[in-house]
């Protein structure tokens, strides 16, 4: 009897906390949706409101009436983010695999170097980076934003920690006995096992790449190459007559694709494919 009471109390506590946190988490999205239906005037008079208004279409017109093309920006963002995420996830897994599955002389040195790179403040590195990109003429080239994703120290670090904790090395041995090549083993056996880790890191790197603004706006100066966040920042940059309604709409349109990718990958976060389970 006592135990049941305790468990009811526990549930009440859990749900109170969770619902409160959920409201906090959803609040900005609700505000974004509502504000994308309000006029600039309404937003300037009262920045946050829970009552939608009827200016969605006129905000859309403002957004589309600019000198840039949001559809194009959307496609550009997709190209960059999808490629960068694929590079990060695949090559980080490969590198982490090299660090965990094999014993080699320079392994620890290599790992230390990766850790060091992670620690350098990013703000100033960007100076050197974009100067280099200008020197080699890689401005207005998506590759300048995609290729660096191959070397993602944080993701490698995560993958390594994940594999250390839960990668069943026995599987490799049995694959070798079956005569599978090393690269094939990685692709056919290791990768599927790492799916949950890849999904989490995939979300993180997609979000980071999609939301990135500073480097793209410096490197992509041709307006047919603009990404969504650049376009939204242009709306905000119109300091004398800022169209807040259109900005919120732009922010909403920017966030929707991430939400879709997120919901697609979220099954791993929700259910998870227990790694060890494969062992059976």
């Amino acid at each position: 009897m006592k135990k049941r009471q305790g468990s009811i109390l526990f549930k009440v506590l859990v749900y109170t906390v969770c619902i409160f946190l959920a409201i906090l988490s959803l609040m900005p999205f609700v505000i974004m949706i509502i504000n994308s239906t309000r006029s600039t005037y309404e937003i300037q008079q009262q920045a946050i409101s829970l009552v939608p208004s009827g200016y969605f279409m006129s905000n859309l017109e403002v957004l589309l009436g600019k000198t840039f093309d949001p559809v194009k920006g959307f496609l550009n963002s997709i190209i960059i983010s999808v490629s960068a995420t694929a590079c990060t996830v695949y090559f980080s897994s490969l590198t982490a695999y090299a660090l965990v599955a094999y014993t080699w002389k320079l392994r620890d040195t290599f790992f230390t170097v990766i850790m060091c790179v992670m620690m350098i403040p990013t703000q100033v590195i960007s100076i050197g980076f974009y100067q280099l990109m200008y020197k080699v003429g890689m401005t207005n080239n998506f590759l300048a934003l995609i290729l660096p994703a191959i070397a993602a120290p944080t993701t490698v670090f995560f993958m390594r920690q994940f594999m250390l904790a839960s990668f069943p090395m026995e599987l490799l041995d049995s694959a070798r006995i079956d005569g599978s090549g090393e690269f094939h083993t990685f692709n056919a056996i290791a990768l599927p096992i790492m799916k949950p880790a890849m999904a989490t890191q995939g979300i993180f790197s997609f979000v980071a790449s999609w939301n990135d603004l500073f480097l793209p706006s410096i490197l992509l100066t041709d307006n047919s190459k603009y990404t969504m966040p650049i376009m939204v920042s242009l709306l905000r940059g119109d300091i004398y007559k800022t169209e807040y309604g259109a900005i919120y709409l732009g922010l909403l349109l920017t966030v929707l694709p991430i939400l879709i990718v997120y919901f697609m990958l979220s099954k791993y976060i929700i259910a998870g494919v227990a790694l060890g389970g494969v062992k059976g």
């Binding site: 090559f91 980080s92 695999y97 090299a98 660090l99 094999y102 280099l132 490698v156």
Partner: peptide, 22 residues
């Protein structure tokens, strides 16, 4: 062991070009 080096090559190349130099 050589696979350890081999599989790290893409990372190392990208790393030297885009991170180490800056």
């Amino acid at each position: 062991a050589k696979y350890g080096y081999l599989f790290s090559i893409p990372f190392i190349v990208a790393f030297i070009l885009f991170k180490l130099y800056p």
